[in-house]
Design a protein around this nucleic acid. Structure first.
Length: 568
RNA sequence: GCGCCCGUAGCUCAGCUGGAUAGAGCGUCGGACUUCUAAUCCGUUGGUCGCAGGUUCGAAUCCUGCCGGGCGCGCCA
């Protein structure tokens, strides 16, 4: 639609300038989607806006505006309604063109770095990683679609004091790390933690081991590397299950910045941004205050000389701007870290590592809750593993498929169950505004009615079936007479705009809402407009409309990271 | 105490950056299957947009102040 929209906007501005003087030509044409189908396709509220400065009644202005407006090649004659709205209805041919010629996005020349997923070494991925991974994937897809170059950064938690303890426990037990899996590593962590708390001698050795790790002791480093390897194998497995494109080449863990941390401190000190407080090197920034109103620091270097997460995050920002040449930096991290990122961004700007022209955005999201309204946990109070979460949804989808006795091979059925189950979870996660918490409710997620993943997948499967029954390859849309056809066509033409909106707001739920509207409009079309049993040009056109709808659903779901099976 | 976020129908949520009578789904109730896949569709029911002011021709949307909830606030990430 954006091929038409700018033209309409330009004509409106021209008409305003002609009718009321050039000083009003620069006014926002306020071209908006019509609030109701009976008002046409678009509306402009310019007349209302101009009423005051022109000192005339809005309706009179609307009449002059319409008189000056030249839209005969694009729209039906404009109508004036209500207090002064000007309603525009596109000609069927223009609408058809919007469907037949989907918008393509040239390269923006912009490079965007997206930091997301961020699992921790030696820990199983759990429900807490779901949102970051799913939202991050969707945003990467959307940004690339609108022409940005996207660089994924998986800031894996692979460094820090706990690894001293882990390595020490490995040596204590005489373990071969490579024989362990992720669950084994997690158990090792628990044993190490107990050991650490119970045995002060072991605790001291663990602390000494951290120093060895950071200074590059070969044995220590090798054991650490093996733990990372075991973990990455597991992450790969989960990403595959989740259908995430994240790979090892996207992993730039905390350890990657280890060498740069002293330099970070030195640079900040040289810039006069550091203050010693309680033995720690701190940056106190204006506008940040703590509990009792005292200045709130960013602790860059701890009192024991070690570096915390802030130092690593600072180094990461610097790396992304200086080395990766990011034009925009995005962090998909839960909302509780909002203050932390505010501080990091502010400090990076003060240090000159993050130019004012480079936006850094914390894409915050809410918590996944259980039915009790508290953070989602198992019955035993443990965190829910991502793997079991996904398996549960796939099993549920499989049961629904079996119940339905859909005519497909077992292999296909397994694949479809996978797509539907995982898609249901992802869609449920993406379809609400990310800032809100949501309750994990499998029944609702896999429901075939309402704004759910399976409902959209089903719409796609139906279209695939219809198109498979025709012997002709779909052509172009030429006939749009039925209201249901027009409504569907109008929506399809707005796909590009919808994606652009997500790229700007970083709110994937807008795309979900859009796709749901498309699927709903398809249902109405499907009820009132026979496709295969119609004849002539109407049939050809409707087949093309089906093909276009299928493409939008497939592409849209694809952007959300959700598969669209051909049958359900 | 300070800061961020949230508050819209019985429930779960949209509301396109200020526009027309605030919309969906679920649920309720009532219809449509010898199906272009009924895992669907159509109809029905339902709201002082937390409260009070303010800005505006016009506010769920912007501003201020309250109320209620979530989260955060020095060496964990």
């Amino acid at each position: 639609m954006s091929a038409v929209l700018p033209v309409l906007a330009f004509r409106l501005s021209t008409a305003v300038a002609d009718a009321f003087g050039t000083q009003y030509g620069g006014l926002d044409p306020e071209l908006r989607a019509a609030t109701k189908p009976e008002f046409g396709h678009f509306q402009t509220n310019l007349a209302l806006r101009l009423a005051k400065s022109l000192g005339q009644p809005p309706r009179a202005i609307a009449e002059q505006l319409v008189a000056a407006l030249d839209l005969g090649d694009l729209c039906e004659p404009p109508s004036i309604a209500g207090p002064g709205f000007v309603n525009l209805t596109l000609l069927p041919a223009v609408l058809a063109a919007g469907v037949n010629e989907p918008e393509r996005f040239p390269s923006s020349g912009k490079r965007v770095v997206v930091d997301y997923s961020q699992p921790n070494v030696a820990k199983q991925m759990h429900v807490g990683h779901l949102r970051s991974t799913v939202i991050g994937d969707a945003l990467c897809n959307v940004l690339r679609y609108v022409g940005d170059e996207v660089i994924r950064q998986n800031h894996v938690g692979d460094w820090g004091t706990q690894f001293g303890m882990l390595v020490e426990q490995v040596l204590f037990e005489g373990l071969v790390v490579e024989s362990l899996d992720i669950a084994g590593l997690q158990l090792l962590y628990q044993r190490g933690r107990k050991h650490f708390d119970a045995d002060s001698n072991f605790a001291d050795q663990s602390r000494a081991r951290v120093v060895l790790l950071q200074s590059g002791d070969p044995l220590t480093l090798e054991i650490w590397r093996q733990m990372v390897e075991v973990s990455l194998i597991e992450f790969d497995r989960i990403y595959a299950k989740l259908g995430s494109p994240l790979t090892r080449s996207d992993v730039v863990g905390e350890s990657a910045y280890n060498d740069q941390l002293p330099g970070i401190v030195a640079d900040l000190a040289a810039a006069g941004l550091l203050t010693e407080s309680g033995g720690a090197q701190c940056a106190f920034l204006p506008g940040f205050t703590g509990r009792d109103g005292s200045p709130l620091p960013v602790i860059v270097q701890k009192s024991d000389g070690g570096f915390g997460y802030s130092a690593t995050d600072l180094a990461a920002v610097r790396h992304r701007v200086a080395d990766l040449h990011a034009d925009r930096i995005i962090y998909v991290v839960d909302h509780r870290q909002g203050l932390h990122f505010q501080q990091i961004f502010a400090l990076c700007r003060a240090a000159g590592w993050l130019p004012e022209t480079t936006p850094a955005e914390h894409v915050a999201f809410g918590t996944v809750l259980g039915k009790d309204g508290k953070p989602f946990k198992t019955r035993d109070g443990d965190t829910v593993r991502l793997a079991s979460l996904l398996d549960g949804a796939v099993n549920r989808a499989r049961a629904l498929l079996d119940e339905r006795d859909a005519p497909m091979s077992d292999l296909t059925r397994a694949e479809v169950a996978e797509a539907v189950g995982v898609g249901a979870i992802k869609y449920a996660d993406l379809s609400n505004d990310r800032i809100n918490d949501y309750v994990f409710d499998l029944d609702r997620m896999v429901a075939m009615t309402g704004n759910t993943g399976p409902y959209l997948q089903y719409a796609h499967a139906r279209l695939t079936r219809i198109l498979a029954k025709t012997d002709e390859t779909p052509g172009i849309v030429t006939v749009l007479e039925e209201p249901a056809e027009q409504r569907l066509a109008l929506l399809l033409a707005g796909f590009g705009d919808s994606v652009v909106q997500v790229a700007e707001t970083l709110q994937p739920h807008r795309l979900c809402t859009y796709l749901y509207e498309v699927a709903s409009a398809l249902s109405a079309f499907y009820e009132t407009c026979p496709v295969l049993t119609s004849a002539g040009e109407v049939r050809t056109s409707r087949i093309a409309l089906c093909a276009a709808t299928r493409r939008v659903l497939q592409d849209g779901l694809g952007l959300l990271g959700i598969a669209a099976p051909d049958a359900m």
